[in-house]
Write a protein that binds this DNA or RNA. Structure first.
Lengths: 213, 213
DNA sequence: CCCCCATGTGTACGGCGTCCATTTTCCCTT
DNA sequence: AAGGGAAAATGGACGCCGTACACATGGGGG
């Protein structure tokens, strides 16, 4: 009946890794219902523990939410990395770089559509957002989604597709564009758009970024 | 001692226009704390009424939130209209049209930064968003913010700044770009950006939209 | 004039986040 | 090996929230 790490009996007290269990439960909740669904009591219930036990590992509900948010951000980065890794070879390095940018955009959009709860949790946290006290361990993936986009743009510069020099700032433009589209597709004026149409807009958006730098 | 409409004594029963009072209270709450701060009980408290009274006018807390959201959306539209109305004359009609697009973008960004609570409430409602059952009366402003952007783009086409024909879709691109930037400035990776820097990015973004259509 | 029904009140329930005191169990020290 | 201290979890309580149901009220149409 070993549920978690080690030789303990798991009955009461000494859970094994409650922090992880709570985080996992929180992520599961966020997947289904977005940030508002990350309810401390429910997370503890799923971890098979009394509500207050959570306070040994998270200072508050918001602290748990922050951890879940970090996990969601990491999941997005993984999705992008996976898409990037699955890319087919191209004729030229320039084409490959172009495809890289498209891959990032496509993965971003797909994540927003298929993992809406996590996407909503990753962004749009709460009102008073200055919670990023000290770099909140990402832990899982090495690169953040934002960094991934940056390197995709770097490759476009390296291969001469994009003129150099304007990089600091270009990633903000690209990110804004794709993020905005994702938000609008999820619950904005475009929320009734068919996935195919959204992709079409995404395609034009990428083209716009390539041209307009 | 007449608090509201008419000759009633206002003591108990017959409030005057409770629905409006609740909505105003809700908007006030949203301004300060975003969507999560729109708390039914607090709204009724501010309206000087018992919690359940709200249920005569809103089916649930979420219904109240939807109404507040509509008001926030309308406030955004008003902000854009005001900016548009305050524009100085230009040499050519084409310049005027260009300035119009910039005005829309600038007003959007400024609204997001100065009325963050309302902005957050306007978008990013909740998880299961299909609440737009039947066109939810906007009531206040005639045009929506989205329509305003559309007409700004139309003027660019009319004056020949933008090639015609690609209009259906172009507003999505423009909207995505500015909306994404707003989100990122508010609580994304760019949330530590100085307002001036954000404006600079906005400027480049508009230029990008003009070029890339 | 009187009755009706829209509007607001009262009471109540369960769920939530969080505080405080208490118990249990691991493991480190003597 | 015995024991003690701290970490981890429990137990109970409080106030706030959304919401359901029954009840009171009083203004306006018959």
């Amino acid at each position: 009946m070993g549920t978690a790490r080690g030789h303990t009996t798991r009955g009461t007290y000494r859970h094994g890794d409650l922090r992880r269990a709570l985080l996992d439960a929180g992520v599961a909740l966020a997947r289904v219902g977005g940030p508002d669904a990350v309810v401390l009591r429910e997370a503890t219930r799923r971890a098979g523990v009394v509500p207050n036990a959570a306070y040994r590992h998270f200072a508050s509900r918001r602290a748990l939410l922050r951890a879940v948010r970090a996990a969601a951000l990491s999941a997005l980065a993984v999705a992008i990395e996976t898409e990037l890794a699955g890319m087919r070879r191209r004729r030229s390095r320039a084409d490959f770089a172009r495809a890289g940018l498209r891959a990032v955009g496509a993965a971003y959009l797909r994540f927003a559509r298929t993992e809406t709860g996590l996407f909503r949790t990753a962004f749009a946290i709460g009102a008073e957002v200055p919670e990023a006290d000290q770099a909140e361990r990402t832990g899982n993936s090495g690169l953040s989604a934002f960094q991934l986009l940056g390197t995709a743009l770097d490759r476009l510069v390296e291969t001469g597709v994009l003129p150099a020099g304007r990089r600091p700032g270009a990633e903000y433009l690209a990110w804004s564009a794709v993020h905005g589209l994702a938000m609008l597709v999820i619950d904005g004026p475009l929320c009734r758009l068919a996935p195919a149409d959204a992709d079409a807009i995404g395609e034009r958006l990428v083209a716009m970024v390539e041209k307009g730098l």
